[in-house]
Design a binder for these strands. Structure first.
Length: 607
RNA sequence: GCCCCGGUGGUGUAGAGGCCCAACAUGCAGCCCUGUCAAGGCUGAGAUCAGGGGUUCGAAUCCCCUCCGGGGCGCCA
């Protein structure tokens, strides 16, 4: 080893020891005579002192050092002179008196600062990811990610789970996301697909009798990216035999509770056991199937009150849809510009419009408000008494701003849900130090797709209906509830799972409702259906998103901050330059011809 | 496919039709400096203002197109 200690590990107790450190020059403070270097390695920072009186040779080397150069330093650990200790550094009580120093490698001036957490253009960061990853914040995220994953592995291992790998080259399946395809050389014209998740494989492992499986599974979905979505991502995927919903949920809840307490003790869990919401309630009260439970600001239905107003927008919506709203506490003073921004926001989320009613801050209660003390974007079409009734129903007080949306129920819920989340964060109602885990349950097993004239599964087609709803599949499939559970946290879907159909007939019935005829069922799901005929045990499981979980644990706003080598919104890897054209020879071996004008980087003629 | 925001020395910003062959901070280079820790002081180099086209006597600035990065809609069983 070229070093005896980690820079960040040195303490007063090491004083007097001769140590050898190796790392990167984080900062230099060259006084001409005395020269200080903050030396950095993964463990942290240590101050190295080059004193010409101690070693003129080492001092000469120290003088030449520049940022990000790689150096090896040997010297004695010493307590810093009285009054020069640095309380801000973990190693601030000591310093290394350099006896010798060797430059292991020089560095060009880096394209951005490693030693400060300043914003840098994302493209530059990704192009030089190996430098970006040197930053303290990124290293902290990667280390925390490792610890979280390690915790999960140990947790599951202690409970009898086996980590079993499943193939990355599998078969393309219909349904769901777009597959990434890999052409077969040995079978020209045929393709593998990368797994969207190991769903069917883990069910086959249950049929195979492994009883408790898990995997830190790479998953691939060729869909557009978002702040919390990458085309390749990692799931903690598990499956168990002979379990019911409560068994899987209890295990996962215990895992996350202990994980938070051990890995991020500075964070507070909102509630344990995790609160449970019905899907229907989540949608109507929070406008989301993954509500942020850190704050209230619930959505109130005022359709009944809106119906009797003279405001046409409300009257019309009350006929065919709903009128609902949220209360933005203390926001009555919002300017026209600010309310216009909110209008634009909800329009972007699918609402037709937004009615704002500002209740002026007065000494008295709601009842004391006069017509002059309310400002409504609906003008005087809604009377002061009607406004008071609405405000009362919504739990508003003078000084608050009512935000109302009218329209079809689903769109209205969705728009208000997004508005609630945005306002909750803007008004600092969502405490960043809190992790509000919860479960959403009682999902419908199937939902009707009128445009395709068939049923579809909101989650995955392998989910079983709850026992007493099984007969409904023959009578009224839309009313059947699923043995499905989604783990939510702070407005994100942290994971989802279900108890599966373990009998072929039950699974086929659902696939049939979803519009797959016998031939299609065999072609697309034959491997699983066949397995269910050979003693498949009752089983169920869950998968949780590791990238997102780490994002929540670290308080980051996107998952690129939790992935060592992420892709851009265009799906590009700026470091390697992927995707990229390949050689004609490679294409030939794969029996692939690329349409000339569609090669990336080239424009169609005439454009 | 669509909507929104952005692209100016290495990095982060300023700039709003002539004051700009572009300013500030930091970084970089050189010199001075023995207790600093965002060290300090002095000097200096560094930008075809993302690319292309247009409007104008005149464009970093206005318009159009393209590319790139970000946020979102659709999409994501």
């Amino acid at each position: 080893m070229l070093k005896t200690h980690g820079c960040g590990d040195l303490r007063a107790a090491h004083a007097g020891e001769k140590v050898t450190l190796a790392g990167w020059v984080h900062r230099r403070r060259d006084h001409g005579g005395l020269t200080f270097i903050d030396l950095r390695d993964r463990s942290g920072l240590a101050q190295v002192v080059f004193n010409p009186a101690t070693s003129s040779v080492a001092h000469a080397v120290g003088h030449t050092l520049r940022g990000e150069w790689v150096v090896q330093v040997t010297g004695e650990v010493a307590r810093r002179p009285q009054g020069t200790e640095n309380a801000k550094m973990p190693t601030g009580e000591v310093e290394i008196i350099a006896g010798s120093a060797t430059v292991l490698n020089e560095s060009k001036t880096p394209p951005f600062y490693v030693n400060e957490d300043a914003p840098v253009d994302e493209a530059v960061r990704l192009q030089y990811r190996y430098i970006d990853l040197r930053k303290e914040r990124m290293q902290r995220n990667m280390i925390l990610r490792h610890r979280a994953v390690k915790f999960m592995r140990d947790f599951l291992d202690a409970r009898g789970f086996l980590e079993i790998e499943t193939p990355i080259l599998i078969k393309s399946t219909p349904e769901g996301a777009r597959d990434f395809l890999v052409p077969s050389r040995l079978q020209p014209g045929s393709f593998y697909a990368l797994p969207q998740s190991p769903q069917q494989l883990k069910q086959l492992l249950m049929v195979a009798g492994y009883e408790r499986y898990f995997q830190m599974a790479r998953c691939f979905r060729d869909e557009d990216l978002r702040a919390d979505r990458q085309p390749e991502f990692t799931q903690m995927d598990l499956e168990m035999s002979f379990v019911e919903m409560a068994d899987v949920m209890g295990l996962v809840e215990e895992m996350h509770t202990e994980l938070v307490r051990k890995i991020v003790p500075e964070k507070r869990l909102l509630a344990t056991p995790f609160p449970r919401l019905d899907y229907k309630d989540a949608m109507s009260r929070y406008g989301s199937d993954k509500p942020d439970l850190r704050f209230g600001m619930e959505i109130t239905d005022i359709t009944g009150l809106a119906r009797t107003t003279q405001f046409q927008v409300f009257k019309a919506a009350a006929q065919s849809g709903v009128v609902k709203g949220i209360v933005a506490p203390g926001c009555a003073g919002y300017s026209r510009k600010q309310t216009d921004e909110l209008l634009e926001f909800v329009r972007g989320k699918g609402a037709k419009g937004l009615v704002t009613i500002a209740l002026e801050k007065i000494a008295g209660s709601l009842e004391a408000l006069t017509q002059e003390q309310v400002r409504s974007s609906a003008g005087r079409h809604v009377t002061i008494d009607e406004i008071k009734a609405m405000a009362g129903r919504m739990g508003a007080t003078p000084g608050d701003l009512l935000l109302l949306v009218a329209g079809p129920e689903a769109e209205t819920n969705a728009a208000l849900g997004s508005l609630r989340q945005m306002m909750g964060e803007r008004l600092k109602l969502a405490d960043p130090s809190v992790l509000a885990f919860g479960w959403v349950v009682n999902f419908p097993l199937l939902e009707w797709r009128p445009e395709e004239n068939r049923w579809d599964s909101p989650h995955n087609p392998f989910c079983a209906p709850i026992d007493q709803d099984t007969p409904l599949l023959d009578m009224d499939p839309g009313r059947a509830m699923a043995k499905q559970y989604d783990l939510i946290c702070n407005g994100y879907e942290a994971g989802g799972g279900s108890i599966r159909n373990h009998k072929r007939a039950a699974q086929e019935k659902i696939l049939a409702l979803m519009g797959h005829d016998a031939a299609a069922r065999e072609e697309q799901f034959g491997q699983l259906l066949g397995a269910l005929e050979y003693g498949a045990p009752p089983h169920g499981g869950i998968a949780t998103g590791i990238d997102r979980l780490v994002m929540l644990l670290t308080g980051e706003e996107n998952i690129r901050q939790t992935i060592a080598f992420p892709k851009t919104q265009n799906g590009a890897d700026l470091l390697f330059g992927a995707p990229a054209p390949v050689s004609e020879k490679q294409l030939q071996e794969l029996s692939i011809t690329v349409k000339e004008q569609q090669r990336s980087g080239e424009r169609p003629a005439g454009a």
